[in-house]
């Protein structure tokens, strides 16, 4: 079995300004590992979108990233309100973000579709009132 490198981050839900810090750090870590720029970009954009989502909708959460020889796995877990209708949430343009978030340049209903677009695998597990766990994989 190949060695796994793992990284853990707590995503602060109170501060929109600091959202994205974990993704910036992962980008640096992957760069140090010599992973290709295209793969790094896909991982960091997908994770950044997920991080922003956790801050907007779920009051923060946790992000775990593991890197093996052939893929990067990102698991984003929150204890937020959950997603009642995942199919609807996956539609481009569908958004439940408040206007205040739109004025900050986000909440256009592109986050989840974008995460799927940039990754090779994405799974959403969500229970209303309990939280959401998103698993994404990017092949190296």
């Amino acid at each position: 079995m190949s060695d796994l490198l793992t990284f853990h981050f707590d995503v602060d839900g109170d501060d929109f300004t600091s959202a994205g810090q974990a993704s910036v750090q992962i980008k640096k870590n992957l760069r140090q590992l010599g992973i290709s720029p295209d793969t790094i970009r896909r991982v960091s954009i997908a994770m950044y979108e997920g991080e922003i989502n956790m801050v907007i909708h779920a009051g923060g959460g946790e992000a775990d990233v593991s890197v093996s020889e052939d893929q990067v796995i990102i698991v984003l877990k929150d204890q937020g309100p959950g997603i009642p209708n995942i199919e609807q949430a996956m539609q481009e343009g569908f958004s439940t973000a408040p206007d205040a978030i739109r004025s900050l340049g986000f909440g256009a209903g592109m986050g989840l579709p974008n995460m799927k677009r940039y990754t090779d695998f994405m799974n959403i597990e969500s229970e209303v009132g309990k939280g959401t766990t998103i698993t994404m994989k990017v092949n190296i």
Partner: peptide, 30 residues
């Protein structure tokens, strides 16, 4: 709209925007 930049932009090196918050720079960095 940073959401659109993250969704549709590919290989552009310059971002022109009227939006002012730290996520503009983070988006550019991503």
């Amino acid at each position: 709209m940073m959401s659109d930049v993250l969704a549709f932009v590919k290989d552009q090196a310059v971002l022109l925007t009227g939006l002012v918050n730290s996520q503009v720079i983070r988006t550019a960095e991503m």
